[in-house]
Design a protein around this nucleic acid. Structure first.
Lengths: 99, 99
DNA sequence: CAAATATATCGACTTTTCTCGATATATAGA
DNA sequence: TCTATATATCGAGAAAAGTCGATATATTTG
């Protein structure tokens, strides 16, 4: 994945919002309390908040994952997504230095 | 202009490259020596390097300008574009904090 | 194994972006 | 003022992204 693909992944309002939601899972996804938040948030919870179809949300998460901004963890029938904070730090540094 | 428009402006390989070129004008645009580099680089110089039509390069620069990443200065028949380094710093901070 | 649930993938259609050539506008100089 | 040059804008066609519904795949549970 190249730099430009990271920016393409970020060039969408809904995907930006999903990333912001994932910053505070407990706050933004109270419906997932029993499963915990260590692995991240499952697709269904994100879909409910995003107000888009399941297929679109799944596709968006896949785009964010391919860009390296989130990681996915399969746990039973659920896939949990969480931010890769190190990736954001790298991107931040890249913008203030290389770019 | 919203955050997402900044990322849209960055979501293009040629535009990213133009921004990198503009980091070192003297090095990347030796053809403009007589005009100096204080105001930035003119459209024609960027077009020659980008290998795209004049209209496309003009449009791309306009996109970068609307996103606040570059500033334009008209000087005679030329328009000089230069990076707004403060904007990149703000973006860098935004990514490491808010986003 | 069958049914139920969660997620992923596929195909199609719509909207946006890319990119060009043609043309308009602005400025400089004869 | 006429011409040349630089840049901006317009209109159009091609390519990419957005978005959906339908379907496929995985996993759990009866």
């Amino acid at each position: 994945m190249e730099q430009v693909d990271i920016f393409k992944a970020l060039a969408n309002k809904t995907r930006l919002q999903m990333l912001e939601w994932l910053k505070e899972p407990e706050l933004n996804f109270p419906g997932q309390k029993e499963a915990g938040y260590e692995q991240g948030v499952c697709v269904g919870q994100l879909q409910a908040k995003a107000n888009l179809t399941q297929s679109t949300v799944s596709e968006y998460l896949s785009i964010l994952q391919r860009a390296g901004l989130v990681t996915a963890t399969r746990k039973g029938q659920w896939t949990y997504y969480q931010r890769d904070e190190a990736a954001f730090e790298r991107l931040s540094k890249l913008i203030s230095t290389t770019l």
